[in-house]
Design a protein around this nucleic acid. Structure first.
Length: 280
DNA sequence: ATGGCCGCGCGTCGCGGA
C-alpha cells in the first residue's frame, strides 16, 4: 500500500445514508482505490444511534460526536491502514479535540485527531461542518463569522503543533467564482460573500492548500447540488466541500476529485464525497 | 415562475439546510 485516501462527505443524515456510505466504500474497494479515512458531516443523530458495529464490520473504527436533528461529525478510519500499535479504539484516535477550544457552542461541528498510518509520519485530521450562515446580515451569519474566527485561531495553534495537517469538511464557502454555477446571480450572497471568502483566504495564508486546485479539473466541478430545481441534472451546484492540506503534505498529494456517482443513486445526499489521495 | 426538495420532530407544518 503506497497511498492513503482521505474522503470528506456531508451525508445529510447518517441514519438515512448509511446504506449509501457502505455501498460507496465498497465501490471504492472494488475499484482498488479503498478509502482509508472518511470525515462525515451532518450525522443528524445522537451518539446512541451511531452505527458503530456496521462500520466495524466494514473494517472501520469511529470517532463521532452527534446531536439530535442537526449537525454531528465523525471520523472513520480503516483499522488495517493504521500501524499495529494503533489498531484499537483507544489508540487509533490520539489527541482528540471536540469542537473549537475557547468557543462555547452547543452545536457539534468539529472533531480533530492524530492518526498513525503505516509507513508514514502521523497526520493530524480536522473534520468540520462549518455553519451555513443562512444569509448575510442574519444572526446565523454572525454566528458563522464568529465560528470562522475561532477556527482561525485554532488552526494557528494546530499548525504549530502538527505540521502535517488536513482540514476537511463542509466549509459552506465557495472560495472562487469558478466554484459557483452562476456567479452573477450569487454575488454577495451566503456561501460566496466577501467576508466568508476572506476567511478562506486567511486559511490559505496560514499555509493550507485547497488540494482540489492542485490538479486539473473539469470546468464547473461542484460538490453540492440543491435538491430543488433539478439542481444536479442541470449541474447547478457549488463547490463548498473541501480538503485542505498543510505545506508539509503538499508534495505528497497525487489526486483530488469529487465522486459524483453516489449523487445519482436513489435517495442521495445533496453533497458528493471529495477524495484526496496522498503518496506515502 | 424568486419556487419547486429533503430530513427531522412528537409531527400531520415549521424549521433548517445551502
Amino acid at each position: 500500500m503506497t497511498a492513503i485516501r482521505f474522503a470528506s462527505w456531508n451525508v445529510n443524515s447518517l441514519k438515512v445514508r448509511l446504506p449509501h456510505l457502505l455501498q460507496w466504500l465498497k465501490t471504492c474497494d472494488d475499484r482498488l482505490e479503498p478509502i482509508d479515512l472518511i470525515g462525515l458531516q451532518e450525522l443528524k443523530m445522537t451518539d446512541d444511534k451511531f452505527p458503530i458495529e456496521d462500520l466495524e464490520k466494514t473494517g472501520f473504527l469511529s470517532l463521532f460526536m452527534g446531536q439530535k436533528t442537526y449537525n454531528g461529525v465523525a471520523i472513520l478510519v480503516r483499522k488495517s491502514a493504521l500501524t499495529h500499535l494503533n489498531q484499537d479504539q483507544d489508540t487509533a484516535f490520539l489527541n482528540i479535540q471536540l469542537n473549537l477550544p475557547d468557543f462555547i457552542d452547543d452545536q457539534k461541528r468539529l472533531l480533530a485527531s492524530t492518526l498513525h498510518f503505516k509507513e508514514t509520519a502521523p497526520i493530524r485530521v480536522i473534520c468540520a461542518y462549518f455553519p451555513n450562515g443562512q444569509a448575510p446580515g442574519t444572526e446565523k451569519f454572525l454566528y458563522k463569522l464568529q465560528w470562522l474566527s475561532a477556527l482561525k485561531v485554532f488552526l494557528v495553534s494546530e499548525l504549530q503543533k502538527y505540521p502535517r495537517l488536513i482540514l476537511m469538511g463542509d466549509f459552506n464557502i465557495a472560495p472562487q467564482d469558478e466554484d459557483v454555477h452562476d456567479p452573477a446571480k450569487w454575488v454577495g450572497q451566503n456561501l460566496v460573500s466577501p467576508e466568508e471568502r476572506a476567511f478562506f483566504k486567511d486559511f490559505q495564508d496560514l499555509g493550507l492548500i485547497d488540494s482540489f486546485r492542485l490538479f486539473d479539473q473539469e470546468a464547473k466541478s461542484f460538490s453540492w447540488w440543491d435538491y430543488r430545481m433539478m439542481g444536479f441534472r442541470r449541474n447547478a451546484g457549488m463547490r463548498i466541500d473541501h480538503v485542505m492540506v498543510s505545506q508539509a503534505l503538499k508534495e505528497a498529494c497525487t489526486a483530488c476529485l469529487v465522486d459524483k456517482a453516489p449523487r445519482k443513486w436513489e435517495q442521495p445526499s445533496d453533497h458528493a464525497p471529495v477524495i484526496l489521495s496522498l503518496r506515502k
